Amino acid sequence: IDAAQIVDEALEQGITLFVVNNRLQYETSRDSIPTELLNKWKQHKQELIDFLNQLD
Rank of each mutant, 00 (worst) to 15 (best):
I49N: 01
G14E: 04
D56W: 09
D8F: 15
L11Q: 09
I33E: 02
D56E: 12
Q5C: 05
L55H: 12
L11V: 07
F51G: 00
I1Y: 11
V7D: 00
E36R: 07
L17K: 00
L48F: 01
F51V: 03
I15R: 00
N53W: 07
K45E: 15
R23G: 10
K45S: 15
N21Q: 08
Q54N: 13
S29M: 09
Q5R: 12
A3E: 03
E36G: 08
L11M: 11
D50F: 10
F18W: 09
Q54R: 11
P34T: 05
Q43S: 10
E27P: 01
A3S: 05
V20E: 12
T16L: 13
K40N: 05
Q5I: 06
E12D: 10
E12Q: 14
R23T: 15
R30S: 08
S29N: 12
A4M: 07
Q5H: 08
Q43F: 09
I49F: 04
Q5V: 10
Q46C: 07
Q25D: 08
S32E: 12
L55G: 11
L17A: 00
S32V: 13
I1R: 07
Q54H: 12
L17Y: 01
L38Y: 08
Q13N: 14
I33F: 05
H44Y: 15
V19G: 01
D8M: 14
R23Y: 12
D2K: 11
G14V: 02
Q13A: 13
R23S: 15
N21M: 06
E47F: 07
I33D: 02
A10W: 02
V20Y: 11
T28A: 05
L38W: 10
E12Y: 08
N21A: 09
F51T: 02
E36T: 08
Q5F: 11
N53Y: 07
D56C: 09
P34A: 05
R30P: 03
L37W: 06
W41I: 15
L55E: 08
T28W: 05
F18Y: 13
I33L: 06
V20P: 01
W41N: 00
F18M: 11
G14L: 04
E36S: 09
L48T: 01
R23E: 15
V7Y: 15
D50C: 05
N53E: 08
Y26F: 09
T16E: 07
F51A: 02
Q5D: 10
L38T: 06
S29R: 08
E36Y: 13
E9C: 05
R30T: 06
E47C: 07
I6K: 01
Q46I: 08
L55W: 07
T35K: 13
V19T: 07
Q46H: 08
Q13W: 13
N22Y: 05
Q43L: 13
Q5A: 13
L17V: 03
E9V: 04
F51W: 08
E47I: 15
E9A: 04
E27C: 12
E12N: 12
L11W: 10
Q43K: 14
T28I: 03
I15T: 02
